[in-house]
Every structure is written in C-alpha cells, then in structure tokens.
Amino acid sequence: MAATTGIAHPRVMSSKSFQKLSQFIHTQVGIKLPQGKKVMLEARLQKRLRVLGMDSYESYVDFLFTEKGQQSELRPLIDVVTTNTTEFFREPKHFEILVQDILPEWMRRTGGHRTLRLWSAGCSFGMEPYTLSMVMHEFAGWNKSFSFSILATDISTRALQHAARGVYEQDKIGSIPQQFRKKYLLRSKDPNKALVRMGPELRQTIDFRRLNFMEEFSFDKELDIIFCRNVIIYFDKPTQERLFRQFCRCLQKDGHLFIGHSESLSGMALPLEQIAPTVYRRV
C-alpha cells in the first residue's frame, strides 16, 4: 500500500471558531458571513491550511490572532473570502446609457476642457475597468477634445495583480464585441496558449490600487462617474449606507453612480436621483 503524505483533511470548523472568524472578517472588510456560509468558508480555507501546514481550522484561527498572523495572514485571508465574479461588458445597458446620455451631456456641460474621472470600485480581475477603457476610447474617437482617467480598486491583492497584467484566457472574452477585440486586444505569440492581453492604450489609462472600504478614503479631485456594481450585496445595510454616503462625498455635483441590478438604495437618505434602473445622478 502506498504511503500517504501531506496534511490530513481538516475537521469541520467549530461554531465558536466560525463565529470568531466571521466577526473578524466583518470588522476588517465589511463582509457578512451568516452561518449558512460556514461550509463555503471551510472549503476556501483548506488551501491556506495546507500552505501553513495546519491540520485544523482552530489552529488557523489561533494563528490569525497572533501578532505574526495579523502581519502575514490578513491579506491571504481577504483573498480567500472575497468573491471575484465578473465579466467584460457585464450589464451592457449601463454602457449604452454612459455613451448615449451621460458622456454627451458631460461634454456639453464642460466643453471637454478637463479630464473625465472614473472609478471602478471593486474592480475584481479587471474586466470592468478594461471595458470602461474600451468604451471611453471609442467615445474619444468621436470627440477629439475628450480625455479620461480610470481608477480601479479592489481589496484583493491577488485580483489586482491579475488585473494589472491584463492577460485573460480566450474563453473569457466572448462578451467583447468583435470590432473591439480586433482593435484593443493582443493575442499570444504562442499559438498553443489561448490567451489575450489588453492593449497598451487600455492599460495606460487605468490606475490599479488596493483599497479597503472599511477604511476612510478620499481623492485629490472629485469623481465624475463611479461604478460600484455587485459589491455592496456582501455588506450589511448600515455598512452599505455608510459606503454610499462616502461615495456621494467623492462625486462631483451632476456626477453619476452605477450599482448592480441585485442592489438597491431603497430607504437610504442620499443626495442622489435615479435616472435609470440602478443609475443615479448626484444632486
């Protein structure tokens, strides 16, 4: 019989450890993990236990709350618990509204005499900011005085590293219009690798940074457009409202906020008016 090696499969996480860990995650990053998420958290933490050579979740939790654990394990834990589900041109109606209504109005109002500032808040693996960059480049082709910059942030270091590289498997680009693929994407020189890379003109317009929504944040200049879609659904209601208030403080008057179709601002007293489903203007 062959010898077995490695760390044994960890036992089930105790309710006490789960509560301690879920409370810590909520405090650090705002993500609420109800009891029903325990099995998911166990599955996602198994790789970390193997990396650290631990055979139980209790050992992991004990380590996490040491000084060394706080220094070395916080970011890997955040990478484990954050969900990075995204795609190019997700919720395409948003980009239609942007190009057909919001950008022309912004040009009329400003004359294009300054740079349009966009923020992809919770950018995950980068599909959203690269989509925005394609859309902005197309609009700039029709409006020569138009210029823009995109800030893209996420709490996950792993996701940001992937986004900054701008390299994706070919089966991820199906939602990108064919004319955009030809214009902005680079295919791998190795025919055996089904990979594409975002072109330099896209990469150069995006500033990727790590940002934790649980920390206070502000910017040198107010923003014109914020995309924060399918992010706040992981937070509780008080955290959501606090975040949206902070977003509003970062927005120019007449700036716009886009949220996901599974999200709602209902019951929140915010200086926003709805102009389309999940699209709001700062008043």
Rank of each mutant, 00 (worst) to 15 (best):
F18D: 05
T131H: 01
P76G: 10
F95N: 01
A194R: 11
W106T: 13
Q246N: 15
Y60I: 11
E105C: 08
I259V: 13
A3N: 15
H9K: 14
L132A: 03
F258Y: 11
R44C: 12
L211T: 08
T110D: 07
M54H: 02
V135I: 15
K32Y: 06
K189V: 00
A164T: 08
Q246R: 13
Q178C: 04
L202A: 02
L103A: 13
E216K: 13
L116T: 07
Q19H: 09
S175H: 12
L185M: 04
V99D: 02
P191C: 05
C250N: 14
C228E: 08
F219M: 08
Q71M: 10
R187N: 11
S188V: 04
E96A: 09
E67H: 12
M127R: 11
M198C: 12
K193W: 03
K183R: 15
F88S: 04
F247V: 00
K221M: 09
A140Q: 05
D55C: 08
R229V: 12
K68M: 10
K193L: 14
W142Q: 15
Q70I: 01
I176A: 08
N84M: 11
N192A: 08
F208I: 10
W142I: 06
K32S: 13
F235L: 14
G260H: 08
Q246K: 15
Q35M: 10
T66Y: 10
T5C: 09
M1L: 15
H94V: 05
R75H: 03
I206F: 03
G30K: 12
D79K: 04
T239L: 06
D207V: 13
R50L: 08
N192S: 10
P271T: 08
K38P: 00
K183G: 01
Q46R: 14
F63E: 12
M134C: 00
I225E: 08
A269M: 10
R44P: 03
R242I: 02
V279P: 10
Y280W: 11
M107H: 01
S145R: 07
V12Y: 05
L186D: 05
T115A: 11
E67P: 09
S56Y: 02
S218Y: 12
G111C: 03
H261E: 09
D79A: 06
T115V: 15
E222M: 09
